[in-house]
Amino acid sequence: MLKDITLGQYFPGNSVAHRLDPRTKLLMVVAYIVALFSAVWVVSYGLMILVLAGCIAVSRVPVKSLVRGLKPVLIILVFTGVINLFWTPGESLWHWWVFNLTREGIQRAIFMVLRITMLIMGTFLMTYTTSPIRLTDGLESLLGPLKKLHLPIHELSMMMSIALRFIPTLIEETDKIMSAQKARGADFESGSVLQRARAMIPLLVPLFISAFRRADELAVAMECRCYHGGKGRTKLHVLRYQGIDYAALFLSLVVVAAVFALRRFGL
């Protein structure tokens, strides 16, 4: 059951989207979000759907897994849809109790749900095609200029990659401790909320202890290899923009410009 978590899941592959520089992909996602939130009417939404479909085709990520990624936000989607449907002022089509269905509401609901769905699918497409290590590398490099303001960018990205690295380990550990306590008759599945919360103690205490132990061991192992922060540290895989990155960035700019232009004409 714990294995179903898809947070930051990466699908290894060798498509164009996989080979893009992580910085390019981060910038493209930013451009994509800006464009998505500037879209106002059917034409610009249509353009964005085309862009997303093109990206999915290029990345060769199965659509099914992208759709599965939407599952956790289903409640938010439904909630947004319903709120917009019934509580948007405008030309009333149908009225019952506090529900007031309007023409504007239908439009808005469709656009809002579409916007959130595409937002999530677009960002997931990035995490699906970029390994966590490359992603944090890209983030560190993009945020690099902020080091001038004495922001600990390197430390933050190191923390992020360590956290990502240890998610599967901790899940495995949780499974193991759960089994061990179940073997002693612990019951995680039945009882009232309070009883269940109490039943978590035999799971959480050993889990925290082992997390601290691991952190300690990791710190020692890093110091043994002379880790002393980001100053003067070089990379094994140096990020370098290729021709394909410039092309992708240029296309993103074109899309943003097109959406802005369409917005001026209310399309």
């Binding site: 061990a180 179940k182 050993p206 082992s210």
Partner: peptide
């Protein structure tokens, strides 16, 4: 199934990590 777990006791590998 819980009754079986009391009758067939299982000690995992490195069981010291389950103390709480």
């Amino acid at each position: 199934i819980r009754d079986i777990r009391f009758k067939v006791g299982l000690v995992f590998q490195y069981p010291e990590y389950q103390l709480f």
